[in-house]
Amino acid sequence: MKTGDLINMLTTNIEAVDHRQVSRTLAAAVAGGAVIALGAALIMLGGRSNIRSDEALAFLIVKLTFAVAVTLLASVYLTRLVRPGVHWRGWMALVGVPFAGIVGLAAISLANAPALHWQAMFMGDEWLECLLSIPIIAIIPFALVIWAVRQAAPTNLRRAGALAGVVAGGLSAAGYALHCTADSLPFVAVWYGGTIMLCTLGGAVLGPRLLRW
């Protein structure tokens, strides 16, 4: 084929292009993922029962704030990253801020508690459930976000995959928070933070395979 013939074909009867399409598709995928993650957590695991106490409510808010902050920061960065040639390295560090925040809070809480309680604070009664639930609930939101990223043009597939993992892990953690009764900051730092990292790692491994174009 001659390149001139290809150009003829591509430029015949073109339509105007909506430049907001990229962010709109990604936003729709994140919103859809949020509905699925919250719904899956409430239907499969059930909402937490003791929400009436102030302490339980405070912990629910901390968990949700962490998960939502992670999701939003990663989504905004991902929206930039899927456009070729657009970068702002600062965002990479910014996505780490909620993680640093929760680890800081966990350290303060540990410093104010006797060492005897530390193990209970870290492990709670439901660490295994958390470890399994967050990655499992993250699968469908991850697929949605990957689908949206594929509609754009990521040029760093590993990083885009990793960020899709962060978004999916964050959404899933928000859903799981509605069920989880382990009210300790070290628990949230290790098991919420850790499982989101696990999703990030999974995304980084799958990204180059799922996102090529």
């Binding site: 292009v17 430049h19 399409q21 990229v22 899927v82 456009r83 070729p84 040639g85 754009a152 043009a153």
Partner: peptide, 9 residues
Amino acid sequence: RRHTYDRAE
């Protein structure tokens, strides 16, 4: 992929 070009850039 031309929709991924951001006119502000």
